[in-house]
């Protein structure tokens, strides 16, 4: 047992503060105020809003793997798709109760990561990118061929999702869906936040920075990465499950590379390894894409490309990096977050 003497107190406080923590700040308040406010201010856009919330959740799951753990995966979409199919399958064959459906979606995706992890995480860099890409293409092929389970090209549909907690019926205006997705996102965010602040969270950041050294600290880095990969996949699976439940349809398009690519772009826009990068980035990406496509259905991808180029040029650390810069101007002693 150690006792802290009175004279040591300022020093101990200094050491304590040297450990970064994801702190509650104005961004927290702002994000949740905007999310709840949107429900009342733009009630006709709740379908888009729900999509954005789900994609924030999916991007958050990617940030855990890529931003915190340095697992440069391009196969995150596989977990999203698998989670979606599992939740739809559950609704079709077992029960339309939504919460259990999400648990099944997250569970199946997490299980897949637990099986694939030991193989995938043996590699790093380009090899890992190619392997994760290959695995997700294989799953896509499987979804097309295994018609009896996945419905083939048509996907799974025609299931009924029961009210949330038996109380809140899903409606065509996405009112329930929006709050349902928001609640799930908030829960996932709290989990993510606890994990990144924990000793485990610091350890995976250490592995991202320098795996060899981490190993020589006696840390079993493969196991830590498998743990992170599984958590991240489960979260992606929950996002897929949400999509299946609120849209009433899950198709092979959820298993394409595009899903992973969009989330990666969202993180580039928002900032890696920051949690809130996923919020800002995915919101910007999906709202911008939606508006650009509505205004000009033929050239919106061009607009997206220009946005991306400008973002990389002027905010290399994403919107969160930009926020840090502005904050540091006010307070030169402030450090950037985790």
């Amino acid at each position: 047992m150690t006792t802290v003497s009175v004279t040591n107190r300022p020093v101990v406080a200094k050491v304590r503060n040297a450990f970064a923590a994801h702190r509650i700040n104005w961004i927290d308040i702002g994000i949740w105020v905007v999310a709840i406010g949107a429900y009342f201010v733009v009630p006709t856009y709740l379908s888009l809003g729900t999509t954005v919330l789900i994609m924030i959740l999916f991007t958050l799951s990617l940030d855990l793997a890529v931003g915190y753990g340095g697992i440069d995966t391009l196969g995150q979409g596989a977990f999203y798709g698998v989670g979606g199919y599992a939740a739809a399958f559950w609704a079709l064959n077992v029960t339309g109760e939504p919460i259990s459906g999400l648990i099944v979606g997250g569970g199946v995706a997490g299980l897949l990561a637990l099986i694939a992890g030991p193989i995938v995480l043996r590699t790093r860099g380009l090899t890992l990118i190619m392997i994760t890409l290959a695995i997700s293409s294989m799953l896509g092929e499987f979804a097309v061929t295994a018609k009896s389970i996945t419905g083939g090209d048509d996907g799974l549909t025609g299931y009924h999702i029961e009210p949330v907690f038996g109380l809140f019926h899903f409606d065509i205006y996405y009112r329930t869906a929006y709050f349902y997705a928001l609640g799930v996102l908030a829960a996932a965010f709290i989990v993510a936040r606890i994990v990144v602040n924990s000793p485990f969270g610091l350890t995976v950041r250490g592995i991202r920075e320098n795996p060899v050294r981490m190993r020589l600290l006696g840390v079993r880095i493969r196991n830590r990465l498998i743990g992170l990969f599984t958590l991240s996949a489960a979260m992606a699976g929950v996002a897929g499950g949400l999509t299946a439940q609120v849209t009433g349809l899950i198709g092979v398009d959820t298993l394409t590379f595009l899903v992973s690519g969009n989330a990666l772009i969202s993180l580039i826009l928002g900032g890696f390894g920051r949690l809130y990068g996923a919020f800002l980035g995915a919101a910007l990406f999906y709202i911008f894409s939606d508006r650009a496509a509505a205004i000009n259905p033929f050239h919106w991808l061009l607009a997206l490309g220009i946005l991306l180029i400008l973002a990389v040029r002027f905010m290399p650390n994403g919107l969160m990096g930009l926020a840090d810069q502005l904050r540091r101007k006010e307070d030169p002693l402030d450090r950037s977050g985790p």
Binding site: I194, V195, S198, T203, V219, R335
Partner: peptide, 25 residues
């Protein structure tokens, strides 16, 4: 990472708490 975090990683590893997914160093 900060200097304290660098050292903290080693202290956590030595105490075998590097896998604890809650709390904070």
């Amino acid at each position: 990472l900060t200097v304290a975090e660098n050292v903290g990683l080693a202290v956590a590893a030595a105490r075998s708490i590097d896998a604890k997914p809650w709390g904070s160093l």
